[in-house]
Amino acid sequence: MRVLVIHNFYRSENASGENLSVLDEIEGLRNRNWDVEVLSADSDVITDGDVPLADLAIRPIYSRRSVRRVRESIRRFRPHVALVENLFPLHSPWVVKTLHEAQVPVAAGVRSYRMLCAKSTLYRDGAACRACLTSRWNLPAIRHGCYQSSPIKTAPMALSLALHRSTFASIDRYLAVSDYVRDELIDAGFDAERIVVRPNFVDDPGPPDSSPGDGFLFAGRLTEDKGVAPMLDGWVRSEVWRHQTLHVAGTGPLDELVREHADRGVVPLGLVPHEQILDVVRTAAVTVVPSTWPEPFGRGVIEAAARGRASLVSNGGGVASLVDDGVTGWTTEATPDGLADGFRRAADLEAQRRFGDAARRRFLERYTRDASIGVLDRELSVLATSGVGHD
Score class of each variant (00 low, 15 high):
Ile6Met: 13
Ile6Pro: 06
Phe9Asp: 02
Tyr10Leu: 03
Glu13Thr: 15
Asn14Gly: 12
Asn14Val: 15
Ser16Asn: 06
Leu20Cys: 07
Leu20Ala: 12
Leu20Pro: 01
Leu23Ser: 15
Glu25Cys: 10
Glu27Tyr: 01
Gly28Gln: 02
Leu29Ser: 04
Arg30Gly: 14
Asn31Gly: 13
Asn33Ser: 15
Val38Pro: 00
Val45Cys: 13
Gly49Ile: 12
Val51Ala: 10
Asp55Glu: 15
Leu56Met: 15
Ala57Gln: 11
Arg59Lys: 15
Pro60Trp: 11
Tyr62Val: 07
Ser63Trp: 14
Arg64Ser: 07
Arg64Leu: 05
Val67Thr: 13
Arg68Glu: 12
Arg71Phe: 04
Arg75Ile: 06
Phe77Cys: 14
Glu85Tyr: 12
Leu87Phe: 14
Leu87Gly: 02
Lys97Pro: 00
Lys97Cys: 00
His100Gln: 07
Gln103Met: 06
Val106Asn: 06
Ala108Tyr: 02
Tyr113Lys: 13
Lys119Leu: 01
Arg124Gln: 12
Asp125Phe: 07
Cys132Asp: 03
Leu133Glu: 09
Thr134Ser: 14
Arg136Pro: 10
Asn138Phe: 08
Arg143Thr: 03
Gln148Asp: 10
Ser150Trp: 06
Lys153Trp: 12
Leu161Val: 05
Leu161Tyr: 10
Leu161Ile: 15
Ala162Gln: 06
Ala169Cys: 11
Leu175Arg: 07
Val177Gly: 10
Ser178Leu: 01
Ser178Phe: 04
Tyr180Phe: 14
Arg182Asn: 10
Asp183Cys: 14
Asp183Glu: 12
Asp183Phe: 07
Leu185Tyr: 08
Asp187Arg: 11
Ala192Phe: 05
Ala192Arg: 14
Val196Gly: 08
Pro199Met: 01
Phe201Pro: 08
Asp204Gln: 08
Asp204Leu: 01
Pro205Asn: 00
Ser210Gly: 09
Ser211Asn: 14
Phe216Tyr: 04
Leu217Phe: 08
Glu224Cys: 00
Asp225Met: 09
Asp233Cys: 10
Asp233Gln: 10
Arg242Asp: 09
His247Glu: 08
Val248Arg: 12
Ala249Leu: 11
Ala249Asp: 09
Pro253Phe: 03
Asp263Val: 07
Arg264Phe: 04
Gly265Glu: 03
Val266Cys: 02
Pro268Cys: 01
Leu269Val: 05
Leu271Arg: 04
Glu275Lys: 09
Gln276Pro: 01
Val280Glu: 08
Val281Ser: 06
Val281Met: 13
Ala284Val: 06
Pro290Cys: 12
Ser291Lys: 02
Trp293Ala: 13
Gly298His: 06
Val301Asp: 00
Glu303Arg: 05
Ala304Asp: 11
Ala304Asn: 04
Ala305Trp: 03
Ala306Cys: 06
Leu322Thr: 05
Asp325Ser: 08
Asp325Lys: 04
Val327Gly: 04
Val327Thr: 09
Glu333Cys: 00
Ala334Gln: 09
Phe343Tyr: 14
Arg345Thr: 08
Ala347Gly: 11
Asp348Tyr: 12
Gln352Lys: 01
Gln352Thr: 08
Arg353Phe: 00
Arg361Trp: 05
Phe363Ser: 03
Glu365Gln: 14
Ile373Leu: 02
Val375Met: 13
Glu379Cys: 01
Ala384Thr: 13
Thr385Leu: 06
Thr385Ile: 09
Ser386His: 10
Gly387Met: 15
Val388Ser: 09
